[in-house]
Structure formats: structure tokens, C-alpha cells
């Protein structure tokens, strides 16, 4: 197989980033509910993808980057009651008249889900991946995907109805 120069690889990777990063950013935003965290998550996933670029087939590049993105797990040490040592989220960007609150509502409900349920719901209902692909992507069983999707949907539905009824009673 012919070897490509670094310049050629970088050109191909640049094209890949420009093509794939908007989609990855949207997925990361749904997973994190935080613009800065989403940006960092995608940046980190793309750096890992670049480091593995020589063995990633072009047709599999998006799937590879998405796998890295959804499996990157980090957490801060959250303290018992007296202190919640989580990173301060940036202030939300409000834009008048564009319905940003409605859009953020589903993201807020989503981030109330446990992490695995959140990932499964996003991969199943935003990226529309088949259950088996989600299972392979997350490294869990098909049954776990079905269970997480079912629980996640039930929790979203319950929370959605709860907030809807709160809103109508005001």
C-alpha cells in the first residue's frame, strides 16, 4: 500500500474535521448539555482520532470518532452534601426570539438521565443508530441497550409530563 506524506494525511484529516465536527459537536452537546464541555469532548475525540488516523479507514472515520467521543468518561470528585466540586458551567447563551429555551428544555431533561441511558437515548433517537450498533459502540449487550432505552424514554416522558403540568398550572 502506498504511503502518504504527513501533509497529505493532514489535508485529509482537515477535510474530515470540517465535515464531521458539526455532527460530533451536536452529539456532544446533547450528551453534556454544556457548550464548553461539548467542545472539549469533541476536541479530545478528534485528537485521539488523529493519533489513530493511519489505521482508520475513511469510511469508518466518523464512526471511530463517535466511538471515542461516547466512551470518553471523566468525572470530578463530587463531595458529600457540604461541597459539590463540579466544574462551573458557563452561562447559557440566550438569543431572543429563536426558541432557545424550548430547545434547551429537552437537553435539560436528557442530562437528568443516568449517563448510560443518556448515551443510549442520544445514539438511538438522535443519531438513529440501530440497537446492535449502539451496543457495539458502547461495549454493552443488546439487552442493556434495550433496557437503557426503555428506562430513558420512560424517565423522559415522566419528566416531560411533570414539567408540562407544572407549566400549565402556573
Amino acid at each position: 500500500m502506498a504511503r502518504t506524506s504527513k501533509a497529505e494525511r493532514d489535508r485529509a484529516f482537515t477535510a474530515f474535521v470540517e465535515q464531521a465536527s458539526p455532527s460530533l459537536l451536536r452529539t456532544a452537546w446533547l450528551l453534556t448539555g454544556d457548550h464548553d464541555a461539548a467542545h472539549e469532548l469533541v476536541q479530545g475525540a478528534l485528537v485521539k482520532t488523529y493519533a489513530a488516523w493511519h489505521r482508520v479507514r475513511p469510511e469508518d472515520a466518523v464512526a471511530y470518532a463517535r466511538r471515542v467521543l461516547v466512551n470518553h468518561r471523566t468525572d470530578v470528585w463530587r463531595k458529600w452534601g457540604r461541597e459539590l466540586a463540579v466544574a462551573q458551567a458557563p452561562e447559557r447563551v440566550h438569543r431572543d426570539g429563536d426558541g432557545v429555551d424550548d430547545r434547551d428544555h429537552v437537553v435539560r431533561l436528557l442530562t437528568l438521565l443516568p449517563e448510560q441511558q443518556r448515551k443510549v437515548v442520544v445514539l438511538r433517537y438522535y443519531t438513529d443508530l440501530p440497537e446492535q450498533v449502539v451496543a457495539d459502540l458502547l461495549g454493552i449487550s443488546l439487552g442493556s441497550v434495550k433496557s437503557a432505552a426503555s428506562r430513558g424514554l420512560a424517565a423522559l416522558r415522566a419528566n416531560h409530563q411533570s414539567t408540562s403540568s407544572e407549566g400549565s398550572s402556573r
Binding site: E18, V42, R103
Partner: peptide, 16 residues
């Protein structure tokens, strides 16, 4: 809802 939320969420680009 997820598509609408996602479209509103990607506000910053990635520098290749």
C-alpha cells in the same frame, strides 16, 4: 426535539 436542540447547540467550531 433532539434535532431541534442539537441544531441550536453547536455554536462553536473546531479548529483542525
Amino acid at each position: 426535539d433532539l434535532r431541534a436542540a442539537a441544531d441550536g447547540g453547536a455554536t462553536t467550531g473546531i479548529d483542525p
